[in-house]
């Protein structure tokens, strides 16, 4: 494990836990896209099918369990919690699942490393993760401002993506035969999606004002 990978995992973990703890503490999910959160829960559920069949390390297993538990908890809070669910603005969170999920299923079926159930599901989770943030970004654009919660959340997710790319570069040069085209390309697409957001995030941070995304 290299430092980029560890830092990437930690920012990823922080993004999910910060979101969960804040929803739990302030009893509000205003500005959070339930659709993005549900897509992430699906990402973890389909990617970690190997959790009971392949043991990699205690670290690996524990992290998988935390990601599964926290992502499903967030979805539960937004959908089921009697106070939190009232702050969910369903009318603004309008991105259609089919536009995201169907292309990912289609791509995973035709572009994968091996045509087995587990492998196709794993590939699907990579494609889905790359675009799962879209409903959240659309919601941000629509409400045209970002509070600390969503700002920190998207920032931490972006940091995780950037660190994972550094991790892949590091592993490519230090480990023999470390070539994984599918996660690399999906990961780069995912990181590019954040690039646009980052521009506005830093711009607003520099000017020390509330973030306003263009219409």
């Amino acid at each position: 494990m290299n430092i980029f990978r560890l830092a990437g995992d930690m920012t990823h973990l922080a993004s999910v836990l910060v979101l969960l703890l804040k929803i739990h503490t302030i009893k509000s999910c205003a500005g959070i896209s339930l659709k993005t959160q549900e897509l992430y829960a699906i990402v973890f559920a389909t990617r970690y099918l190997d959790i009971f069949t392949d043991f990699i390390s205690l670290y690996n297993t524990i992290m998988k369990l935390i990601f599964l538990g926290s992502s499903f908890s967030i979805v539960w809070y937004i959908r089921q919690h009697k106070i939190v669910r009232r702050s969910y603005d369903k009318d603004q969170d309008t991105f259609r699942y089919v536009f995201i999920v169907l292309p990912c299923i289609f791509l995973a079926l035709i572009i994968n490393e091996k045509f087995t159930f587990k492998e196709v599901m794993w590939t699907f989770s990579l494609y889905l993760e790359a675009v799962a943030i879209l409903p959240q970004l659309v919601l941000l654009q629509r409400t045209r401002n970002i509070d600390n919660l969503t700002g920190q959340y998207v920032f931490l997710l972006g940091a995780y993506r950037a660190l994972y790319i550094l991790n892949w570069i590091y592993r490519y040069f230090t480990e023999p035969h470390y070539i994984h085209w599918i996660p690399w390309i999906a990961g780069i697409v995912q990181t590019l999606l954040y690039g646009d957001f980052f521009y506005y995030y830093f711009h607003s941070w520099k000017n020390n004002k509330k973030l306003q995304l263009p219409a």
Binding site: D50, D54, I56, N60, K64, F67, W122, Y164, P183
Partner: peptide
């Protein structure tokens, strides 16, 4: 054909 190593990333 060599089996690929298990996926160790999250």
């Amino acid at each position: 054909e060599v089996e690929p190593p298990p996926k160790d990333e999250l």
